[in-house]
Design a protein around this nucleic acid. Sequence first.
DNA 1: GATGAAAAATCCAACCG
DNA 2: CGGTTGGATTTTTCATC
Lengths: 157, 157
Amino acid sequence: MDATDRKILAILQEDSSLPVAEVASRVNLSQTPCWRRIQRMEETGVIRRRVALVDPDAIGLGLSVFVEIETGDHSAEWLERFAREVEAMPEVMEVYRMAGDVDYLLRIAVANMAEYDGFYRRLVALLPLKNVTSRFAMERVKYTTAYPVGEAATGGR
Amino acid sequence: MDATDRKILAILQEDSSLPVAEVASRVNLSQTPCWRRIQRMEETGVIRRRVALVDPDAIGLGLSVFVEIETGDHSAEWLERFAREVEAMPEVMEVYRMAGDVDYLLRIAVANMAEYDGFYRRLVALLPLKNVTSRFAMERVKYTTAYPVGEAATGGR
DNA sequence: GATGAAAAATCCAACCG
DNA sequence: CGGTTGGATTTTTCATC
């Protein structure tokens, strides 16, 4: 992964619908080598997938809720089962296992409070949890899937 | 946006590199009407963009940190400026204005603790903030950009 | 690796029920 | 709205440097 690959990544993270020829010209390369670089990054898993990003408001899922969960003392198997079940819930967009007092942090996308309440009930009914805190987002100020891939940001990796 | 559009969205949110003919056959449509539906959803902004999703570990940005910020009492202009400045920082992947005691919640992607420390110093130097709390993720259990678009999930919108 | 060009696949527009 | 056809564009492969 050299500087050219990173430039390609920066472009494709913003717009993956661009023709390879266009990407190539922007990184001062001709089509084929550029195409091979993209291909290689897809094979090696640097590029995980290409997706369409949907506007949550447009499909009526504009409410983001962050859920902080303390699981309490539990076995590794219990925790694994918890993670698997939460993962399978479609409203759950992100799940992180955290350091510190909160064990898991979830981002939930729902239509409104009533729907969130439904989700919350299903969540706490799933398994016994020590503590569950809901924090509601008023506004999504920034949301990007594009990681910074410039020299400075990655430490020249 | 009918059920067919939602089916198309579900597919494209998972893999937008599929040829239209493939999408069309999966939703029992021929190529052109399917293509027209996709086109329309792009024009109306339901589909915001098509992007490549990069594996953060593969580019050395595997550390996720959540930052909770209390700004304190400030004017609308001050808050707007704050939002604009934070938004412009490339390590910042998500920013939410929150209800409750925490004013903003940020998700930061960095390479390691040292880099996070650098980000933190730049953040607090930006403007005076009442309180800043960092929470570190040990593991990303789930991350998806695909909103649930089934009948049940959207309330039949 | 890079290049240019040809072959294959895909997109998109024109046109019809 | 949906379907079919075909030219334009793009992707992908292949020789050549």
